[in-house]
Amino acid sequence: MIICKFVNKYVILYVNLTLHTENLLTFIKKMKTAILLPYYFKKIGIILIPFGLIIWCLTQLGYLNDVVRNQNGHANSLYSPILIISFFSFLIGFYFLVFVKEKQEDEFITNIRLLSFQRASFLQFVYFFLAFLFMLLFKKEPSVDAGLEMFLIISILSFWLFYVLHFNISLFLIKKKANEEQS
């Protein structure tokens, strides 16, 4: 009877522990992909990026002057909203592309994601280092605030750009090789 109670106690403990471990593993798995968006956001991102970028460039280069400027050449009330909406469309689209899940998100994809993050951070560091070196040697430092602002924006975006390119190219190449082997 005592042995039965003892065994029973340990069976319950084992079951509880197993259930707890299962829950913990599920929790960790969910945490890993918690910040990733569903796959359909990729399509939204692919539409938003060129839309935002083209509108922003056209506005800045003056191709939309008929819409955003008065007859005397001053910016009208549409100028700022168009610039803001186009820039944020680009930024949000880019965010969607960076943080979107793959169709089947598994540990290999997570591994490529991590590798891409590491390489992107390294390349950003190289970019930063070379850009400062260039400025130091050739004295081409951004003399006005706008130049410095642009340099910092590019250096921030370059990380995400490297990441997106590295991740998608790696996936594309592995898919291509897998398809070649199958055919």
């Binding site: 540990e107 090789k177 199958q182």
Partner: peptide, 30 residues
């Protein structure tokens, strides 16, 4: 097939290809 194995263990076909070619070392669970 690679796809059947991938479906069986709930991963993508690229993962099976990467494991078979030694490009990726799978986790203990896999």
């Amino acid at each position: 097939t690679q796809q059947e194995l991938a479906d069986e263990i709930a991963v993508s076909r690229q993962t099976i290809f990467a494991i078979e070619t030694g490009k990726y070392i799978p986790s203990a669970i896999l």
